[in-house]
Design a protein around this nucleic acid. Structure first.
Lengths: 202, 202, 202, 202
DNA sequence: CATGAATGAGGCTTCATTCAT
DNA sequence: CATGAATGAAGCCTCATTCAT
């Protein structure tokens, strides 16, 4: 029973945290981090200001949590998706890129946030972001290196291609207001992959 | 003589404005727009706070001016550089892209600023930015369309390629802290152009 | 049996109250009244915040109780000690002063508290303190008056001497950090009594 | 002229600081440090809140300044007064004690403050207070040592006598509400000196 | 009895902006 | 033109207190 209580409580705590975080991410995206007041977050989440501070240390903590949230999802989903795609480097890249854009499409606000406000964080927070970013990039780098080894790809600069690949994926969130006028997610993914892979093939 | 006075005065005014703007851009980049105080800008520029308000309406005006400044440079230099490159679509793109990255490299702070803080601006300011961005993109789009017409390029989505091209150019500023570890500007430009043009060729 | 239950219950209540009060006095002394949070008191006492409010009306009540606690001990122990010392005014003063310093030494925090924070209390609370202070002073005043009547002492201002006597006793708590470097309680009591009584003798 | 401007400006700055400090000391004394709001200080000083922070780092700084102010006056006036009193140890002590009580009488609030709130200060501030207190005590200690050497006084513990002397002087501020009912400053000083010196004489 | 999540008033502090000199 | 002292609105955060469980 103590166990039940414990997990019930842990659940409630997790749910509250998520509620607050959701409200914060929404407002950060709508108005920007600095223009968002803690009172606004509380109101959006349907709670009182004070409660925010029982789940997050301070406002910056909320920002860090918001950004870490999406980067964490990258780190968790990208490698999983890519390894499910088998051994073929091209297939792995296709699968990984699509997943990346899909995750970004699910939380475009948070993606933009991580571009816009990461400098707002103190060093400690920024270091955490860099680490997560590198972890996300790694499986892509690996697939490209594999493709080069197997002569599926030209001898390109793998790091640079990964840099482009991430840039283009983030571009879906950064410029969605313009792109979505004439492309949907599927078209964006396919056309970008077409361009990308053409540049890699021998 | 009135003219001389007038232009001397106009010069002084322009110089002062530029000094203030330079200080502001530096600090906006170092600490972010919101963390930068008007007092800090004044101090960096070696003037008093009050004087800022004789050259700029308010703090947001300073931000807009900072961003417009670099976007204006894009608009002025890109078309000029591209038209100097002759008629060949590939040569025009090469020349335009290189110029773009060079301008960005000259004021990386301002570029990052325009990504980070453009949402901070009120609608009026944001509209101005969009206009400038479109103007910058146009010559690239034209070169690609020309290349497609002349069968130098495949029938790609020109808007998408321009989107990528700008994204990658901005990437030089956004991720310079990482890229500069292994690439200099020349190498970045050449390798990116190599990837880009390969994807365009039939 | 109802009685047994009642007193057992009363005991438990009294013990809890004392536990909370002890935690509060410790923290009030360590950090000051205002810097001490009710949560900290609860934690130190090993209970929940809510429980504090079942034993004390509010935080100020806790402060009043803490101060009253020590002043009450003065009022209880000083007269008792002095009357045990017989009729000789000097002996009574010696005995009373020593007891006073001993009680203070036992709860120096609370003594300092009553100096530092008594003004924090509302009028009602402060009046209670004044009453207790006067009650503590009275037996000393009486002994001095008796000494003057019996020509053991000069015709000094009894109230002033009591004022000094209390001041010096409190000084043991107020400046203990300095005094304890070179004096122990016994030496302090003896030397102070020596000075005090010399000033009283004809 | 630059000099005139400079000193005029320095004067204005000093005057403002003093005005704010005066308002703060008044309110700290009336309501206690913690119950005094920065807005109340501003209102009492007839200025805006923001201005406080151009003259003092923060609220605690204001408290420290208030306490240092009076302790600084002790340090400046006591030695001066005592050295003017000539060589006789008793005369020096008389003169010093009287000056001490007079200074205290001039700013009783600040004296009480230094007792009540010194613990509120961070270590740095407290260390400064201790230093000032020791400097104030020193001339008294010297006079007593001299008196002992010249056989004017018994071989008492000089540090202890200084401790008492300061305690009794502070007592004028701490218990003024009671003492002033029957004694004026002159009477207090004379009677206390009578008691004190009697205890010292052989 | 006991808990501790939740509340929300209120405090300290910052900083863009103004204006008298 | 230029200064910088002064303003005051507004934000972040704390913490005493309550109440449903």
């Amino acid at each position: 029973m103590a166990q039940h209580q414990g997990s019930a409580k842990a659940d409630r705590v997790a749910r509250r945290r998520a509620e607050i975080l959701r409200a914060a991410v929404q407002l950060f995206q709508e108005d920007g981090y600095h223009a968002t007041t803690t009172h606004a977050v509380a109101e959006r989440a349907g709670i009182s200001v004070g409660l925010i501070y029982q789940y997050f240390g301070n406002k910056e903590d909320l920002l860090r949590a918001a950004i870490v949230d999406i980067l964490g999802e990258f780190r968790d989903r990208i490698p999983a998706a890519m390894s499910q795609a088998g051994d073929d480097p091209e297939a792995r890249i296709r699968r990984g890129f699509r997943t990346l854009v899909e995750v970004i499409d699910g939380k475009p606000e948070a993606t933009v946030l991580s571009y816009r406000e990461s400098m707002t964080l103190a060093r400690e927070g920024r270091d955490e972001l860099k680490r997560l970013e590198v972890e996300t990039a790694e499986p892509f780098r690996q697939a490209i290196e594999d493709g080069i080894s197997s002569d599926d790809f030209r001898a390109v600069d793998a790091d640079l291609v990964v840099h482009n690949l991430l840039l283009v994926a983030h571009g879906w969130a950064l410029k969605r207001w313009r792109l979505s006028g004439w492309l949907d997610l599927d078209a964006y993914v396919e056309r970008e992959l077409d361009l990308l892979l053409r540049a890699l093939r021998p």
